[in-house]
Design a protein around this nucleic acid. Structure first.
Lengths: 224, 224
DNA sequence: TGCCATCCTCAGCCATCCTTCAGCGCTTCT
DNA sequence: AGAAGCGCTGAAGGATGGCTGAGGATGGCA
């Protein structure tokens, strides 16, 4: 099942860590940042479905970032504000935030609000996550941590197939017919491409494509 | 643009009158009722864009009415609740209210929230921004930084399609059917127009139309 | 009618990718 | 221990996909 992605921008580390933990255990893929420094990059690379945004930030403040988000993505925005005044709450909503939470807040409430915004946007995330790798077949993007991985078309199709079947062992024959179509191909072709895929995907990080000798390959994190 | 319609369901007359006055002077067309008796009828006849709904009502309560609204209309819902507990707030959001206001509330805040919900529902960004480029399909204008870019009709339609699908890889076939319609066209046609588009759009500035070999093209800023 | 901008086709060039092959290491079976 | 089987990887050619300049066809406009 594909997970929705949430980007958290919050400078207070205690809160950031807590929010990350809460959202992660609620089943979201979370990326958290202490500031909006690389916001544009994060929006285009990580492509969050929802951004949780602190109002008070070093550098550009939350409202400035909100405008950036609105213009260059379709993500929902939940703002965090320490200021309780009606004026600020109005400001946040008027500027076009989808929702806001006043600090201090109950973690469960933030999680519920993120969920509500997602439901409202009726986003159906298409990405697959395995360990710290994110595969987005629509966008043609593969991430490992925050790093983009460049793959050729065939490598990408192979990875997408493994991602679709992740956790399941698939034979070379299955892979051949699914990725290369019907035709007379050498099983070694799969080996060659698995090899290339590993070289790129597992350059910095633990193994994700596991060999099951005599049976085939599995995509999953952790031990074979 | 036509005025947005707001239906208010609130049994306390003082509040109902105040809310009606506030929303009316904010430019909305308002219909107010003391209960949800004729709710179905009001939804189909008055066809509100947003319903302001009290949680505590004689007869069916707010949550029951919320379900009715969700089933038989596309209206947004702002709930009014006298109870301040987190449990109820979560309940309201979980049930699918678009927002809620806790009594007693500042009238201006309710108005702002109704406005926010409306904006959210109508969230159709007319312009798309990618990097320092702005594309306005309705106005037929393309900007790169401060500079206007002159495009031919076909180039513009191509760019608009890419902008619509920004961040997503689209194949030449998809582009052909979307921009040129059904017909027998050579995929090279797309290549020719991508080439022309790039010459104009990326004359002064980094690449925005990226080639994904074997898959198609993407419009996005930053790395391929 | 004649001009001009735009649209589409064609063909050559280049870079990259796909596929095959061969050799090596590890595991498993005799 | 030896042989056989399975999987991994580097190298290399041919094949493919993508880019671009040129030119004919089309249609609007004076």
């Amino acid at each position: 099942m594909a997970r929705a992605r949430v980007l958290v921008v919050e400078d207070a580390e205690a809160i950031r860590v807590a929010v990350q933990a809460g959202l992660t255990s609620a089943g979201y893929a979370v990326l958290s940042k202490p500031d909006g420094q690389a916001l544009e990059r994060d929006l285009t690379v990580f492509r969050p479905d929802v951004v949780v945004l602190d109002v008070m930030l070093p550098g550009r403040d939350g409202f400035a970032l909100l405008e950036v988000i609105r213009r260059s993505s379709a993500a929902g925005v939940v703002m965090l504000t320490a200021r309780d005044g009606v004026a600020d709450r109005l400001h946040g909503l008027t500027q076009g935030a989808d929702d806001y939470v006043v600090k201090p807040f109950v973690l469960a409430e933030l999680v519920a609000r993120v969920g509500a915004v997602l439901r409202r946007l009726r986003r159906t995330p298409s990405t697959v996550q395995v360990g710290d790798a994110v595969i987005d077949p629509e966008a043609g993007v593969v991430l490992r941590g925050e790093q983009r991985i460049e793959l050729t078309a065939t490598e990408f199709r192979l990875l997408c197939y493994l991602a679709e079947q992740r956790g399941r062992v698939v034979s070379k024959t299955q892979i051949l017919t699914s990725v290369w179509g019907y035709g007379d191909y050498d099983p070694n072709l799969v080996e060659v491409y698995i090899s290339a895929l590993r070289r790129k995907l597992e350059a910095r990080g633990p193994r994700l494509v596991h060999t099951v000798r005599g049976l085939g390959y599995v995509l999953r994190e952790g031990e074979p």
